[in-house]
Design a binder for these strands. Structure first.
Lengths: 326, 326
DNA sequence: CTGAAAGCGCTTACAG
DNA sequence: CTGAAAGCGCTTACAG
């Protein structure tokens, strides 16, 4: 049985109301009694019961964060950004992890967050079903996708996927590459993939390069997709540069190509999209379109009350060693 | 204003008590009214207020998990194990992230968990100060360290660090290596490092190899420590094999050595401790002492009520390409 | 099978 | 500056 405010009140010979005010630094109270109360609280090991406090206050100042506990490597960066900003605003964070591509589990997790009455909800690199979106709308919890965009009826903070695809391709073309592949995503199934693909097509078009359908190697953004794409391009030898749609994919490409005896960037050049530390920890290091995930996390919490629009965060091209000078 | 049980009760023309029983599938009730109540609850978008429920029940069936949101790569694996097991037992998980080496922030986070009255607390790969440990003891929350051992007054589930150091060293010796370094930890400051070092010394001693103090390159388990150690050993050329105390360190070693023109395993062999996917994603792939982090997570929750002892989880040596055949 | 009522531990107008 | 009291939304003996 944990100690409660009433215990402190009794010991201090005052009312619970006063104890509450003192402990929360709210309302008026004398500093003398305050000192006494704080000492007692400390001595008997008092810790507020948040259930009771939240219930009474009807506002708990916590924002929920759900992420997929899979190999997506930038979640941690986003979460760091979220935490740093939440600290500044005196907001608590409750994290919950879910599995990628497990709508049931996500639904359950979202329900849990609703039951905990979080003030806002952030979904990191996650694509909710409309069932989830409707649920959230119904209970009027501000929700944002972070690190991914969407065409569904929900706000997001992410990079401009079209522009990243465009930029990656254009830079490659400018450096002299003519046959450019794109690896690791499924433009039929995936909205983000489609946007990037469109940017890629646009850059190709502007340079009067005729797109070949076999320049695409599909996948699900994973390392294994990269490995498979490496095998594909090694076999086909139809491109000289490849855009990996995530750092995972690009590392898979790099390793897969290496294992097949190809040299990067001599035989194939690679530019990755994401730009996490994976890029600097491979040999050669991966040239990348680098997204600002920390900023996304920060913005997601700064804007948590006014859920009025999407925000697109700037990205940049970082030259490393898997391409010629771009 | 979210809808509440009373709203459902009014709509259904019954008491709140009955609604509560139905929604929680507890006590007795007729299936007819149950069906009606469930439909109403769904229609008006009812979600239990957990604050109220927890307060009334004085038990919330949730276990708190705190981890460091830094580059420690095995946290995710542990957390996956924790989640899987928690699901089986119908336990909720609240995750919170903290910074490595930030006792203030950890204290704050632990306090937050206490206020939320978690049934048990898991600290993933974290070394709490005695202040934290005493706090937890005072409020009688079962707490376990997961993924690290300790000599402090708190239980843990981890691998046997002494044995890992011993095993890594002994395997190397058996394969013919005589000059064996250990990189990336500080045996003065760090308890885990000391245990592994003692195992290492024992294996050396058994093989009548005289330990040289310059076989040690200190660090803090990080990638950068690996890079620095690479520079050190490259310069000294005093060992032929190096034990990296974490996958991060080992990857740093590998990359650092590569950048200095050394070849692994020809010039230096490396065996890593951890065995996460980092080991299979480097070229050459890292031979490792592989810990079973998922099992640690699982065990930590299975045992969450009976906090009576430490548990040591088996590890194994996995041969890859940064050493001769061990 | 069902309801009235007390209680969980806080907070917060309100009155003094 | 302080206290008595109501209320937050649930759960759970208890009585029927």
């Amino acid at each position: 049985m944990p100690v409660k405010i009433a215990d402190i009140a009794k010991l201090a010979g005052i009312s619970s109301a006063s104890v509450s005010r003192i402990l929360n630094k709210t309302g008026r109270y004398s500093e003398e009694t305050a000192a006494r109360v704080k000492k007692i609280a400390k001595d008997i090991g008092y810790y507020k019961d948040r259930s009771a406090a939240d219930l009474a206050q009807k506002n708990n100042k916590t924002i929920g964060v759900i992420y997929t506990n899979s190999k997506t490597n930038f979640n941690n960066i986003v979460i760091n950004g979220v935490m740093a900003e939440a600290d500044e605003h005196g907001l608590d964070i409750i994290l919950m992890a879910t599995k990628r591509n497990d709508p049931k589990k996500l639904l359950k997790t979202v329900r849990n967050m609703i039951e905990r009455r979080v003030n806002a909800l952030l979904l990191i690199s996650l694509q909710p079903t409309s069932e989830v979106i409707n649920m959230l709308k119904q209970v009027k919890i501000n929700t944002k996708l972070v690190g991914t965009s969407t065409d569904k009826d929900i706000y997001f903070v992410s990079s401009n996927d079209f522009l990243m695809g465009y930029q990656a391709t254009k830079s490659l073309i400018r450096a002299g590459y003519k046959k450019i592949g794109m690896a690791g995503s499924d433009i039929m199934q995936d909205y983000v993939a489609r946007l990037r693909y469109k940017g890629y097509l646009k850059a190709l078009g502007e340079a009067k390069i005729k797109f070949q359908t076999d320049w695409l190697s599909p996948g699900n953004f994973s390392y294994d997709s990269g490995i498979e794409s490496a095998a594909y391009f090694h076999e086909k030898k139809n491109v000289s540069a490849i855009i990996g749609v995530s750092d995972e994919v690009s590392l898979g490409l790099l390793n897969g190509l290496h294992d097949l005896g190809d040299t990067v960037p001599a035989d194939f050049s690679i530019v990755s999209i994401d730009g996490t530390e994976i890029c600097t920890r491979s040999r050669p290091q991966l040239t990348s379109i680098t997204q600002n995930f920390a900023l996304m996390g920060k913005i997601a919490v700064t804007e948590f009350q006014n859920n009025k629009q999407n925000v697109l965060v700037p990205f940049k091209l970082v030259q490393r060693s898997t391409t010629k000078k771009l």
